[in-house]
Simulated scan of single mutants.
Amino acid sequence: MANIQYYDVILKPVVTEKSMELMGDKKYTFLVHPEATKSQVKEAVEKMFGGTKVESVNTMNCPGKKRRVRGTMKFGKTAKTKKAIVKLTADSAEIEIFEGL
């Protein structure tokens, strides 16, 4: 396992219709480092966003999709990703990056 620092764990937020609906329940979706564990994701969210307390973390591994190279009959794959859905406690502060959306 690679030595991953907390600022390397969260790559970017996921902004979709489903993730926007989950924000009403204080659940936020992030793309995370493929080797990050649930405890590392929890630590990263609590350190990066002040005043937040994480109740639970659910992770999912998304395999890469098969794609055709433009103009030829060669095939390749996109990179595999990992998503994390982070649920905050009821008395926790909101995450600011999602407020303007």
Rank of each mutant, 00 (worst) to 15 (best):
S39P: 03
N61V: 12
P34Y: 00
A79D: 08
E17S: 13
C62R: 13
G100K: 14
F98P: 00
I4Q: 02
E99Y: 08
P13F: 03
T29Y: 05
T52C: 08
G76E: 10
R70I: 06
K18E: 14
K66G: 07
L88E: 03
P63M: 06
A93K: 15
T16H: 06
G71Q: 04
V15H: 10
Y7S: 14
P13W: 03
G51Y: 09
A44N: 05
I4K: 02
M23L: 06
G76R: 11
I85V: 15
R68T: 13
T16Y: 05
D8K: 13
I85N: 04
E21H: 13
K82A: 06
K66R: 15
K87D: 04
I10K: 01
P63V: 05
Y7M: 11
K66V: 13
Y6C: 03
M1L: 11
V54D: 01
L31Y: 15
I85R: 02
K47Y: 08
Q5V: 09
H33C: 06
G64Q: 06
K83I: 12
K27E: 08
K47M: 13
H33R: 10
G50N: 15
T16Q: 07
L88A: 05
F49M: 08
E99K: 15
T52R: 01
L101S: 07
G76N: 11
I10N: 01
M1V: 09
F98C: 02
K12L: 07
M23W: 02
T37H: 00
T37L: 04
L101Y: 11
A44D: 04
M1H: 10
G24F: 02
V54N: 00
L31N: 11
I4E: 02
G51I: 08
V15N: 09
Y6S: 10
I85L: 08
Y7C: 10
